[in-house]
Design a protein around this nucleic acid. Sequence first.
DNA 1: TAGATTGTTAATCGATTAACAATC
DNA 2: TAGATTGTTAATCGATTAACAATC
Lengths: 207, 207
Amino acid sequence: MHSAHVPEIVVSRLPVYLRALTEMKSKNREITSSQELGDRLGFSSAQIRKDLSQFGEFGKQGTGYNISFLMEQLQRILKVDRVWDTALVGTGDLGHAVANYAGFLDRGFRIVVAFDNDPKKIGDKAGPFVIQDVSTLEEEIRNRGIMVAMLTVPAEAAQDLADRLLRAGVRAILCYAPTSLSVPNGVRVEYIDPVLHLQDMTYYMPE
Amino acid sequence: MHSAHVPEIVVSRLPVYLRALTEMKSKNREITSSQELGDRLGFSSAQIRKDLSQFGEFGKQGTGYNISFLMEQLQRILKVDRVWDTALVGTGDLGHAVANYAGFLDRGFRIVVAFDNDPKKIGDKAGPFVIQDVSTLEEEIRNRGIMVAMLTVPAEAAQDLADRLLRAGVRAILCYAPTSLSVPNGVRVEYIDPVLHLQDMTYYMPE
DNA sequence: TAGATTGTTAATCGATTAACAATC
DNA sequence: TAGATTGTTAATCGATTAACAATC
């Protein structure tokens, strides 16, 4: 494992590889190749081999990659060979959908607490979670040692809540609010804004 | 407007610029600079100027960019100076959250129809929309001339429904299912899978 | 063995940045 | 005018691809 500096763009493709391998495994496939994986995902086989080679030698010449083995290696590299306790901040429609989503656990994440600032909601449920008052956010996050959070609040509230999450010890935020956050170095933020994707696609539409 | 070939990565940043400009305008700002925009979004000012220069000259030396004017230009370039009728396929929790989301319309998109395959749901509402039987998908999409769709169905169902959407005339799909779709050239697909973002961030977490 | 596929090198391709003349 | 900021060029930096020896 030669972990010099790996480009971010390479790291961002690893979860895509892992997801495809998981699908293959669920169909009882045991072996794949960089060619097959690339065809399936729209990458060149060279790129897949190059990406993987940043982290070690996981394949066999003439044969390809053992799917289960490569999955384990990618899970280890991405640090999802464990389960990360995760906080959900905001329990509107989107927060509820996220709270109910069953697909986190087997990919390395488990929501363990959900917050809202609406007094009428405190004590209600968002999926399986009792909604807690956001005033307890810092204490809860710190006590539980939570390092990952998902932010499903209105854009106007996002920066303030991000600041609070970081002060409480969170190091990675997935921001669903349609705004750009300002965070210090060493903290990761990624964004989900469906409209960005839609607007990007319409550029390519015929008039 | 020198529309030679613009790199996809440049196009994908334009919606981010537009979103930031919209925020600034809502705070009654009238002028900005590549420096300010860059600081705010984490890009270099040179990159912002270079990106914009692909499409024309929108600024004034010594002054910067008029926010409203630049917004209009970006909306035109991205083709969101109109409203795109959009289909929603799948009305689970996530589909409901998407159907209820109020943030599409003023950014160029309007959901006009929602489909599900569950007989018990047909006729119910997802947000303001009466859920229609997915068996009417092709007919509805074609009759309404819909070219944009959002796919909030389980991964196993996604490819089949994507194929049907394309046959009915859809040209752009925003896929929320955690899988990679195979589509012909000329069709755009973008993906939203929160776990990909989370897994990418945990790579950078301390042990 | 013959065929297949990896891991890696070097070449190519493309994107970002630094710098600055133009000019508001 | 002096100061500021654009649009653009050229240089730098980084990512992708093609090709192939190694080897299963």
